[in-house]
Amino acid sequence: MPSKQSAAVRRRWEASRLAMVQPGFDAPDDESWGDLTAEPRAVDYLESEAGGLPAMWAVPKRASTDRVLMCIHGGGFQGGSIYTHRKMFGHLAKAAGTRALLVSYRLLPEGVFPAPEDDVTNAYRWLLDQGISADRIAFAGDSVGGWLAVTVQLRARELGLPLPAAALLMSPCVDMETTGRSYETNRDSDPFFKRDVVRGIIRGFLGEDTDARDPRANPLYADLSGLGPLYIQAGGDETLADDARLLYEHAAKAGVDARLDIVPDMLHTFQMAAGRAPEADDAIRELAGWVRPRLGL
């Protein structure tokens, strides 16, 4: 039985759907997305730049200074920011006992494929140039930020950059063909992410010239061998649940150390309710507990 607090995530996705189908209904504004998350105590924020774009450090009290979570926000390549997600990633950094660097990337219409990947790769290179060893960096991303947390590793490997120690993926959107059965099995339980909606988002991002099976764009067709450990979480009620399952299976076949948790009754990026919903808090604790030893903490 889902908690009453987790219902706020469902209400937000329901409102987003109504704004698409009901004339005159105002969609939730982007900045209010962060209202789902409670303010984590004892975390400081410092605005910066990484790779030439805005970034933000989330620094918990008494956190390790030589380990970093590089955090990549979701938002369908159209929204989200270091500001909407700062509190959620602040909770994760606090639970892990390390700093987090929240990075930016270009959004649509400017940020068509592969611009976001270029931007986050530049941010990763910048972080390495600060003297932080790759084996003391973990990527973290939700939704399309989870996609970036995988594809940027593939780009880094191509460029000869060292790979991060691990990656934390929350409701990753990686199936660019939208083939998952969960689009049908969870059609009634997910109020927003219908197959046609996700296809429209992907089409707008990839454009006409990029095939949805291109390994550069679709991790399910990429060679994932050599990547560090992956921890993938998704909600049991979301239509993108099979994105998580398919990625887990593909990674495991490539020899990647992977873990998958599908949390019953939860929706897409339910971790945004951190500090309010027990399911989100439990998920954050699990992510943090898993990544700590992989960062040597």
Results as ranks from 00 to 15, higher is better:
S81L: 02
D282E: 14
Q130V: 03
V198N: 08
L154H: 10
L128H: 08
E39F: 10
D243R: 02
G200M: 07
R216I: 00
R216T: 03
F192H: 14
T269S: 15
I137R: 10
A258Y: 02
W126G: 01
G160A: 07
A149I: 02
W13M: 11
L260W: 04
T210P: 12
D281W: 08
A217P: 07
I201A: 12
T178I: 03
A212P: 15
G180T: 00
P40R: 06
Y45F: 15
E238W: 09
A8E: 14
E177K: 14
D257E: 15
T239Q: 14
L108R: 13
Q233F: 03
P215N: 09
F89T: 07
M88S: 09
G146F: 09
M70F: 08
D35W: 13
Q22S: 11
P40I: 02
S189E: 01
Y248L: 08
E110Y: 08
P2Q: 10
A280Y: 05
D142W: 02
E158V: 00
D175M: 01
L154V: 05
A8P: 10
D190S: 12
A258Q: 01
G24R: 02
L108Y: 10
S32D: 06
E238D: 11
R136G: 05
I232F: 05
D209I: 00
E39S: 10
V43Q: 10
E208F: 13
D35M: 11
A165K: 04
A27K: 12
D282W: 08
S81N: 08
A140W: 05
S48M: 04
D211M: 09
Q271A: 13
A58R: 07
E47N: 14
E31Y: 11
K253T: 06
A254I: 00
Q233G: 06
V197N: 06
L18T: 03
D142A: 13
A42S: 13
S182T: 11
L224D: 00
A95H: 12
L168D: 01
P28I: 03
R216K: 14
R155W: 00
R155C: 00
S64P: 04
E117N: 12
A288R: 11
A251G: 03
L161V: 00
G228S: 05
M266H: 13
A165V: 00
V59S: 14
L247A: 05
I232R: 04
D30K: 11
Y248I: 01
A27S: 15
D243H: 07
N186F: 12
Y45N: 04
V21Q: 12
L169P: 10
D214Q: 05
S133R: 15
